[in-house]
Amino acid sequence: MGASMGTSKIEERYDRNFNTLSLEEQKTLGTSKVVVIGLGGLGGSVCEMLARVGIGHLTLIDGDVFEASNLNRQLLSEERLIGFPKAQAAKNRVNAINSEVKVRYFIEYLDESNLYERIKDADVVMDCLDSIDTRFKLQKSAQQASIPIVSGAIAGVAGQVTTIFPDDKGYELIYGKKGRKQPKGVETRTGNIAYCAFFVAALQSSECLKVLLDRGDILRNKLLIAELWTNTFDIMDLV
């Protein structure tokens, strides 16, 4: 098929999305704008899934470049890409999968100075960050911009997912009141295993679609917790 695929009709490309998704829903996804912040273990897989499912506009942000220690879990990392910017690799991957996706990418870290600007036009922000401190900053900006956040976090073979709407308390319910500097999570000691990262990224992608399509059960004020050694899968009430 090759290059001609880019001009495919929506019915062809997304044939196997039907009728889990309706054509109407597929078109909604095609006009949706999603920002993915953090393109490591979670964000790389999130990009892959959102591109394949047919999100029309993706903004991909990470200031980092690949290093050897990413290869154990980060979908976008390859040996030949060591030293290469993650955001640029993400753009290349998304467009290799689905050239119809409009991609913007930024090789930069986010803080109070640029967060609002980067997310303000989005329908959903995907929090794939590895810093609890930056998650709080993201929530503040997303509240200002009235944008929901789908948040994932991992450590070892454990993970958690929640969806935060602008009026919600959000991270405070999970990490406690924001201190001046949030400590790192236990992932600094456990590392992260590939299948857990992919699994949590899949849950995040599913939440993203449900928010965009206003369909299904959304993890609002709830925390889905998974631990894969014990096959624990629970949804906890945060309020």
């Binding site: 953090g38 490591g40 273990g41 979670l42 964000g43 794939c128 960050l129 590895d130 810093s131 609890i132 998650r135 994932g152 976090a153 991992i154 450590a155 454990a158 993970g159 958690q160 990490y175 949030q182 400590p183 790192k184 999570g185 236990v186 992932e187 456990t190 992260n192 917790i225 629970d234 906890m236």
Partner: peptide, 10 residues
């Protein structure tokens, strides 16, 4: 009863 440490990795 379930107890969790802070989990923040990405």
């Amino acid at each position: 009863v379930g107890l969790f440490p802070p989990v923040g990795g990405g």
